[in-house]
């Protein structure tokens, strides 16, 4: 996404509009900007004050929501719809630290490495191999492996916790330094997190189908 300045004129009164939500001359709603941080009036940082973000989200919703533009001109109605869609998309991304980091990386052009077996460390790989065997037995009806699966789940949750802590400090380092190599490190950690998260979700699904069976019998 390019950040160079364009001269934009207000569609309504023709005065320069300077990328703000509303024209400061005639107060009409302008075509919205697509940059999530700029939309919220925030610096593009990886650490964000969640309470402030929510407050801003509510304020902007009140200003932009289509419910408020039903009696306005079709142009403003259309801008309101587009602006609120961006607002909602932006809020969804910015309030979630992982989605937020992915967004910053994508804007910076740092692509995902598609974490397949070869990019993962051997210890995790061995564990996944074991896990798949246990899941196979579990699906085959062998209930004795359940504790092992639960332990595996705990270990993955702990790993995710470590990854999140690691991300937290990398976020801080990036916000201070803006160094591209920090982004590369974040990329690696995010890919690893995605892999671990998938495992946790898979285990949750398998273990959940089991426990609902038990719940209906009592």
């Amino acid at each position: 996404m390019s950040h160079f300045r364009q001269t934009v004129e207000c569609w309504q009164c023709g005065h320069p509009a300077e990328h703000s939500l509303f024209c400061r001359y005639c107060d009409s709603l302008q075509r919205p900007t697509a940059d999530y941080f700029r939309f919220f009036g925030l610096e593009p940082r990886l650490k964000i004050d969640a309470a402030n973000l929510e407050k801003r989200f509510y304020e902007l919703s009140r200003l932009l929501h289509p419910d408020r533009y039903l009696r306005k001109s079709p142009t403003e109605q259309q801008y309101s719809l587009e602006a609120t869609a961006i607002l909602n998309d932006a809020y969804r991304v910015l309030r979630n630290p992982v989605a937020r980091a992915e967004y910053v990386l994508r804007q910076a052009g740092v692509e995902s490495l598609e974490p397949r077996a070869r990019t993962l460390d051997p210890a995790l790989l061995a564990e996944v191999f074991e896990l798949n065997e246990a899941l196979e037995e579990f699906r085959g009806g062998d209930r004795s492996v359940r504790p092992a699966l639960e332990q595996a789940r705990e270990r993955f949750l702990a790993q995710r916790g470590e990854i999140d802590a690691g991300l937290e400090s990398l976020f801080e380092r990036y916000d201070e330094s803006r160094a591209p190599n920090v982004l590369a490190e974040i990329r690696k950690l995010l890919d690893r997190r995605k892999y671990v998260q998938n495992l946790i979700e898979q285990l949750d699904r398998e273990l959940a189908t089991e426990s609902t069976d038990a719940a209906t019998s009592d």
């Binding site: 289509p66 719809l81 609120t84 869609a85 961006i86 909602n88 998309d89 809020y91 969804r92």
Partner: peptide, 8 residues
């Protein structure tokens, strides 16, 4: 459960 309007 995405808040609407929503886009992609």
């Amino acid at each position: 459960n995405s808040t609407i309007p929503a886009s992609a």
